[in-house]
């Protein structure tokens, strides 16, 4: 029971945050109107705002945050490195390149879903390239291949930004790179959810082996853990899940890195036990941050989700690091 308590608390916080997110927004709706809109299928203004604008956005925030937190937790356990995060494998970079290319060549202007579809393809190609480069090698080969693909893809992204055909394209690319959940619809949910759920399932399959990996790869192998297969599962799960998340939400850093650290002390630092709480913490982070971007009024365009998360998250992470260092000393 004691092990379930942190999960329950996180879940409760998540439900509260999700409800809160449904009640706030640009259109000033009283809470009673929101509740009525949720319960009915009336095509009135309140119904449209709550069911077609706010609800898909909340669900996307939950999916995106959960898969980022989960993937981060799996990669940190697999690579036995507290600094591992989904971006490490080059998959986010591949998605960014795909999206930027869709905008650069004007596909995005003629077809609304070009950007997410290109991003998804980019993520898949990046994952395949990392796999091909790292084949036969160990964990280090995987990290190096990820770094190589990541820097190549980002170099091409900056090249595209540099050569952009017009300022509008540049601004659109930057918007995507800064991450956002604004103006997302059920179509985005339908596009991303199957990939995110499939990726999440693959990532969860690594759980039974992650604990033993705390002893190093050789001891894990001696305990019957198929380390090579675990590596493959983590890469495939991250490619599907984080690739799809990046395809609909753009680049959102930091969540995958920090979410596992937030919950690790709650589960006795056991790598396999971190997975589910990390997914919940990631969902909570993205949801709260996205709600905040809607509430914070700026003189210019609304704050980018990725930007806000990094702005608020970085000092908090620093505080966490300092506190952990203080405890270890």
């Amino acid at each position: 029971m004691r092990a379930l308590l942190p999960l329950m608390l996180l879940l409760a916080a998540l439900v509260l945050a999700a409800l809160g997110a449904l009640f706030v927004g640009l259109a000033p709706l009283p809470p009673s109107a929101v509740l009525r809109a949720l319960a009915s299928s009336q095509p009135d203004l309140a119904g449209l705002v709550v069911r077609e604008i706010r609800l898909p956005r909340v669900i996307l925030a939950l999916l995106v945050g959960a898969i980022l937190g989960l993937s981060g937790a799996v990669l940190q356990g697999l690579l036995r490195n507290p600094l591992a995060e989904p971006g490490l494998l080059g998959i986010s970079a591949g998605a960014a390149l795909g999206a930027v290319l869709a905008i650069y060549y004007g596909f995005a202007a003629s077809f609304a879903f070009a950007t997410p579809l290109f991003a998804l393809t980019g993520a898949g190609i990046a994952a395949a390239a990392v796999l091909a480069l790292a084949r036969g090698g160990g964990t280090l080969a995987l990290i190096l291949a990820g770094a190589a693909i990541s820097s190549t893809a980002f170099a091409l992204v900056y090249l595209a930004l540099d050569l952009a055909p017009n300022p509008y394209a540049t601004s659109e690319m930057l918007d995507w790179l800064m991450g956002s959940l604004a103006e997302r619809s059920w179509d985005h949910v339908r596009l991303a959810a199957p990939f995110i759920l499939a990726g999440g399932a693959l990532l969860l399959l690594t759980a039974p082996g992650l604990d033993a990996l705390a002893l190093g790869e050789l001891q894990a192998e001696s305990l019957g853990v198929p380390v090579a297969r675990l590596r493959l599962l983590a890469l495939a799960g991250t490619a599907l899940g984080v690739g799809a998340a990046a395809a609909v939400a753009g680049t959102i850093g930091f969540v995958g890195l920090v979410a596992p650290h937030l919950v690790r002390p709650l589960v006795g630092h056991r790598p396999a036990r971190v997975l589910l709480p990390a997914a919940l913490a990631g969902a909570l982070l993205v949801l709260v941050a996205d709600t905040a971007t809607r509430l914070i009024v700026t003189p210019g365009p609304p704050l980018g989700l990725g930007v806000l998360i990094s702005l608020v998250g970085a000092p908090f992470f620093l505080w966490l690091v300092l506190r952990m260092r203080g405890r270890a000393a």
């Binding site: 036995r80 033993a212 002893l215 190093g216 001891q219 001696s222 305990l223 019957g224 056991r270 790598p271």
Partner: peptide, 27 residues
């Protein structure tokens, strides 16, 4: 049926000794 301890042993996370010992039962 077989247990193996390598030359260099390290634990990467601050799991408790109890959990560490229990890892031997993984299979």
């Amino acid at each position: 049926r077989r247990a193996y301890l390598p030359q260099r042993q390290a634990v990467d996370w601050p799991i408790t000794v109890e959990h560490l010992v229990a890892l031997g039962l993984t299979p």
